[in-house]
Design a protein around this nucleic acid. Structure first.
Lengths: 237, 237
DNA sequence: CCGGATCCGAATCGATACTG
DNA sequence: CAGTATCGATTCGGATCCGG
């Protein structure tokens, strides 16, 4: 059951046939954070019907984008193939592009750990980070807690349980979290307006879209310099 | 009738809601070549049902990706907004990504002028062109005839009618075509294997995937250096 | 011809229930 | 945990039709 063909012999068409079906690119987005079990994907995409999830995973495997990896005595995970991982700059660019058109959230829109992780990756400015001192942020948005480490060499994000423990390290990509963060802050979806530059950190605190829980509040300035999406700049570096 | 929401507050999700529906990105691909009338789009996407085309155009307008421009006494065209044009590097990158997975064409796969134009853009290597002398190619693939001008400043592609006349210049993006091309050659879909580096020009002629109609056959080497998609290199420059 | 709108059967999607 | 099975709701595809 090949996916319905567009009837053209063209690279864009082929790409859309591979990853253009509903939900497919969101599965790829989550897998770009790290390998995930079926159940992880289902939780990260709460509105996906389970039959669609399994159908997409099969199609993505057929397309060479995803593979299924058994874990010794521990179930199995899905992960991107090297070919699938080449989608990273594309997904990041799409995130930046879509970010510009985001309005305010619908009442039932949610923020997941993987989507926020990728959002920070899309907003990360390596050039800014390379000229700034290192920093460790603990970011709370809705129920998601992220430990964000920035230094001149790049960006590392670990997902913490709301309780405070890191997720299963077997699932990879999480750097071990050492020591305390330099700042802990909590935000709502309005954090978008900080990243777009629409709000300064001070204004964000004023308008209660953001609150510093602990640590050095002045680091918010550095955060806002490090993570920003400016209109018209879509290309990954 | 907002498009079905994925229920997440995330840039990638927003992007997919804007351009992820069936056919949408192919419409964008064709509009990246230049403004197009409804009928042009229908011809460039022969398998699209007309109700889907009009629905997508409405959705893309609502999303701020496309706008409808009346032409004085001459009907109307659809064109990308500046925001829509920001998709260019993304579509080019997707073209490169999909190119790697393209097999041989199905018997009923076609090549359109716009898809071939974009394919050459995806394959164009500005770095190679900047060190090579200028060249003018006339490329025939199936029924499509393209006039391809390369010089160190970049790439210009004009679509010719099979008869040899340029298309309506009102529709823009076509440079005026001056003088004769340096080489005229005809190829089938197997030109893909030249661009992938799988075949040298000499081998391509040997295997009859390509034939020189007129001009300097040695220019095929330059063509093959200028247009190439190598595995793993997806990012636009 | 251009720019669609309408109708209808086929395929896909979404929601829920259920299973090894 | 990792999926199938089922079934109504939507969307898609193909064809036809219509006003300018």
């Amino acid at each position: 059951m090949a996916s319905r063909s567009y009837g053209q012999y063209c690279g864009v068409t082929t790409a859309v046939e591979l990853i253009g079906e509903r939900w497919a690119l969101l599965i790829v987005r989550d897998l770009l954070v790290g390998p995930r079990r079926y159940t992880d994907l289902k939780q990260g995409l709460p509105k996906i019907p389970t039959n669609i999830l399994s159908t997409r995973l099969k199609e993505l495997q057929e397309g060479g984008v995803v593979r299924r990896v058994p874990l010794l005595h521990c179930g199995l995970v899905y992960e991107l193939t090297p070919y699938g991982r080449e989608l990273e700059p594309i997904v990041l660019a799409m995130g930046r592009w879509g970010f510009q058109q985001m309005g305010d959230p619908s009442p039932d829109d949610i923020v997941t750990a993987d989507s926020l992780t990728m959002a920070l990756r899309t907003a990360f400015r390596a050039d800014a980070a390379s000229t700034l001192p290192p920093a460790d942020y603990e970011v709370h948005v809705a129920d998601v807690v992220l430990r964000v480490h920035v230094d001149p060499s790049g960006l590392k994000i670990a997902q913490l349980q709301p309780a405070g423990r890191p997720v299963d390290p077997r699932l990879g990509t999480q750097a071990s979290v050492a020591g305390d963060p330099d700042i802990v802050f909590a935000a709502g979806p309005g954090i978008r307006r900080l990243i777009s530059g629409e709000l300064t950190p001070a204004a964000a605190i004023d308008q209660e879209v953001l609150a510093v829980v602990a640590g050095d509040a002045t680091l918010l300035e550095r955060f806002a310099e490090t993570f920003r999406i400016e209109p018209g700049v879509v290309l990954a570096a």
